[in-house]
Write a protein that binds this DNA or RNA. Structure first.
Lengths: 133, 133
DNA sequence: CTATTAAGGAGTTATAATGTCTATAATATA
DNA sequence: TATATTATAGACATTATAACTCCTTAATAG
C-alpha cells in the first residue's frame, strides 16, 4: 500500500518543468541528475507521461520535453493516474458478491482522496515555491 | 498502489465475526472456507489482528477467535493499520528536502481518506447487511 | 492424557517494481 | 548529405514484496 517510486519521480519531474521552464524544452539528463535517477529509467516514466498528455516531447538535437499548453490545469490526480493507471486501490469483492459493502466503503474513501488530489494543481505548487523541488 | 489481499481478508473476517458471532468463538476453518483462503495463511493474518487488539483468541479445544468488548468502536482504519502498518503511502522526499511540498499535498490527501475510513465502523456494516459478507 | 486449536519460524513461489542494455527513429545543424 | 543529439521501444536482469506452505511448539478443554 504505497505509491511507487515512479509516481514520485513523475510528480517531481512535472514540478521541475513547471518551475524551471514552462516553455523551454529540457532533456532527460538534467532532470535525472536533479532527481538522482538513471536517465534511462526516468526516460520510461517520461514516455508514459507523454502518452497521457502530461508533457510533450520532440526528438533530435535541441529536443527534449516541455509542458503542454494546458499545463496549468494539470492536477496531481492526472499525473498519478498516468503512472499508476486508473484502477481502484481495492478489489476486495470476495464471494463474487457485486454489492459488497466493504468495497463501497473503500471506494468512497478513495474518492475523498482523489477529490483532494484533483484540486491540487502543479501550477499552484510552482508559484508557491519556485526554488523548492 | 493497491491494498494487499491480506487487508481484504482482514476486513472480511472482521465483518464475518461481527455478523455471525459477536460473542461466540469461531475457529479459523469456517472463516477460511467462507473466504476461500487456506487456513494457515488466514491464521497469520488473524494473529496480526490479535496483536493489534482487533480480536481476541484462545487456544485449545473449543477455542478460536472473538471480537473484543469494544468491538463496536473498531473502524476500517484500525483494521487497515493493523495489517498494512501505520506508515504513510508516500515517501517522496527526494533531495533530502524536509519541507517537500509534494509530500505535504500527498499527506493531506491521504488524511482525507483516513478521515473517512476512521468514521466507518464494522458494526455499522454488520447492522446494515447481516446476511451479506 | 489426548484431541483440538492458536502461534511461531523458516522456507518457497509468484508477482510486481525497478533498473539496464541495445537498437531504432526523428530532428537540428554544419 | 552527414553527423551529433535526443526520444522511443523492446528485451532482459535484478530486486523487493506479497502470497502462501510446512512443520513445530504451546496452550486449553474434556
Amino acid at each position: 500500500m504505497k505509491y511507487s517510486k515512479a509516481t514520485n519521480y513523475a510528480l517531481h519531474t512535472m514540478l521541475y518543468l513547471a518551475v524551471t521552464s514552462p516553455k523551454q524544452r529540457v532533456g532527460v539528463q538534467p532532470m535525472a541528475e536533479k532527481l538522482e535517477v538513471s536517465p534511462t529509467y526516468l526516460s520510461k516514466i517520461l514516455t508514459q507521461l507523454v502518452k497521457a498528455g502530461m508533457i510533450e516531447s520532440s526528438p533530435g538535437a535541441g529536443g527534449g520535453y516541455k509542458l503542454p499548453s494546458n499545463w496549468e490545469e494539470i492536477s496531481f490526480l492526472d499525473i498519478i493516474h498516468a503512472i499508476e493507471g486508473p484502477v481502484s486501490m481495492f478489489d476486495g469483492c470476495l464471494n463474487h458478491n457485486p454489492g459488497c459493502l466493504i468495497q463501497r466503503v473503500m471506494d468512497d474513501a478513495e474518492g475523498k482522496m482523489e477529490e483532494e488530489l484533483k484540486q491540487q494543481k502543479i501550477s499552484d505548487l510552482a508559484e508557491k515555491a519556485p526554488s523548492v523541488l
